[in-house]
Design a protein around this nucleic acid. Structure first.
Length: 263
DNA sequence: TCGCTTGTTGATGG
DNA sequence: GCCATCAACAAGCG
């Protein structure tokens, strides 16, 4: 599931359910999910701690405690599960936080892409998160355009580069480029001022909308995402059949009429 | 069996 | 050094 909008909703969910609560015990059912500590050290470091705040940067969730910070990446299939919504544990619940009062928060991930890390200070946090660009939801227009001016390469590759703007994944990139009428393989160097301004405005609009409507894939029939991947799908704007190509190494859907190819 | 999946990283070649 | 591509990781589905 998770690109920026999903992770932002996980963050809000975590803030509602876990912030202010004490961790009684941490159960690691899959040690490979804990990435920069042993399962035992990870569990011991968080036991007895209180979750103070939940932040997000791009696709990362950062859960602050009165001890170390818990860093969570959801990969392609990660999720947060609350025991009150789903009492029985599931085989893909790989880390379980037992909270004071008897509730559990569970990190579920079918595939093992993603995981959890601990950071004991700001330096460790930077090491784990890597070289992330500004968060794609909150980046300002000036900073966005400044970063864009220094980049070369295809528009989709740049949008999805976490060093450019953190949080944009394969689906959001397709949606943004389709709404902005920019071909995914178009070189960003070839974009004129109007293209760049449109790209920023659309990115902002798509992300803010998707964050507030968790089921935007279903609830926005005028969006590309609503029909993306369906056999025989047509452009919601002009009804032309969608094209399927590979760009930036990922399956990409676009409208050949609305998004004219480069050259 | 093969191909595909909303992610990231490292190797490789131009 | 930059950029594009591909394999690998991983588990499930059609």
């Amino acid at each position: 599931m998770p690109e920026l909008p999903e992770v932002e909703n996980y963050r809000r969910f975590f803030a509602e359910r876990a912030v202010g609560r004490i961790v009684l015990r941490v159960v690691v059912t899959d040690p490979t999910t804990v990435r920069n500590a042993s399962a035992r050290a990870f569990a011991r470091a968080l036991a007895g701690r209180t979750f103070l705040r939940a932040d997000r940067h791009g696709k990362w969730m950062l859960a602050r405690t009165d001890g170390p910070t818990l860093l969570v990446h959801f990969g392609m299939t990660g999720d947060l599960i609350w025991s009150g919504d789903e009492p029985p544990r599931h085989r893909h619940d790989r880390v379980i936080f037992e909270l004071e009062g008897g509730d559990e928060l569970r990190y579920r991930n079918m595939r093992r892409l993603g995981g959890v890390w601990l950071a004991h200070d700001a330096g460790e946090e930077r090491t784990v998160l890597g070289d992330l660009g500004p968060d794609a939801l909150t980046v300002g227009r000036r900073e966005f355009l400044g970063h864009l001016a220094r980049r070369r390469g295809g528009a989709k590759a740049v949008l999805m580069d976490q060093r450019f703007a953190a949080g944009v994944g394969n689906l959001i990139a397709d949606e943004v480029l389709w709404q902005a009428r920019i071909h995914p393989k178009r070189s960003v160097a070839s974009l004129d001022a109007a293209d760049r301004a449109r790209l920023f405005g659309v990115l902002r609009k798509v992300l803010t909308t998707a964050v507030e409507e968790f089921d935007y894939l279903q609830s926005r029939p005028a969006w590309l995402s609503h029909v993306r991947g369906q056999p025989g799908a047509r452009c919601p704007r002009c009804r032309a059949p969608l094209a399927r190509v590979t760009a930036a190494g990922r399956t990409t859907y676009l409208c050949p009429r609305c998004q004219p190819p480069p050259g």
